[in-house]
Design a protein around this nucleic acid. Structure first.
Length: 210
DNA sequence: ATCCCGAGGG
DNA sequence: CCCTCTGGAT
């Protein structure tokens, strides 16, 4: 795909949704970090239901740590992978409380050293909480980047690097959310709805049933 | 490469 | 039933 097509795609995304943001509900960087940690292989909707209850009881590292693993599990049992997520969230809370003054570090290495926080979660926090132009490649973005031809790659890291190189700079900060939302609601994994897609004419997938 | 793991959609 | 959902640790 050439540069003009990419620019046109993101221009359309921008016109349709000038200020895209995450659908995860949060009020602080720590709540965002916790919500993203819980969101692995889960829907935002399901995560929000759990975090509304959890954050009402504990929404700081000290409070989550005090709640303990079994305490946290009570609130997140409806989310997949809840046992490992509860353990990781409590361990992360303890580290933030003890080594980071209860704050979320705006630093990739510090973030990725936290239990349950990998590259993708760190990228989301750096982008959404701290305004850094990172590219968190999740299941949606990986699929969309390959399917449309915007930034094809064999694995998520390769797609991330190509997006950082190929997305026009003026769209970089919001590209993450636009691609997520497009993947969630239009270019869905199982049944992409090409007939109501705003960029079909620029897409290399070109589903034959249009 | 495999495990973790619930809810919702088709 | 089978697939998918803003992955990470082992």
């Amino acid at each position: 795909m050439n540069k003009e097509k990419r620019t046109e795609i993101f221009t359309r995304f921008q016109q349709a949704n000038p200020e895209p943001k995450t659908e995860l509900e949060y009020t602080t960087p720590f709540e965002l970090l916790a919500a993203v940690l819980l969101s692995a292989q889960a829907t935002d909707k399901g995560v929000n239901i759990a975090t509304r209850k959890l954050f009402a009881v504990a929404n700081t590292p000290a409070a989550i740590a005090a709640l303990g693993v079994e305490g946290v599990e009570q609130y997140i049992k409806t989310i997949g992978l809840f046992r490992s997520k509860a353990k990781h969230l409590v361990q992360t809370a303890e580290i933030l409380r003890d080594k980071h003054n209860g704050e979320v570090p705006a630093d990739r290495d510090a973030l990725e050293s936290l239990p349950g926080v990998g590259r993708k979660t760190a990228n989301v926090v750096l982008n959404t909480a701290f305004g850094q132009p990172t590219m968190a490649v999740d299941t949606h973005i990986f699929r969309i980047s390959n399917r449309t031809g915007i930034a094809p790659g064999k694995d998520v890291l390769q797609v991330e690097k190509r997006l950082l190189k190929l997305v026009p700079p003026e769209f970089m900060l919001n590209a993450h959310h636009w691609l997520i939302l497009h993947g969630r609601y239009v270019c869905k994994a199982r049944k992409p709805e090409c007939t109501r897609c705003s960029i079909v004419d620029l897409c290399e997938f070109k589903k034959k049933t249009i």
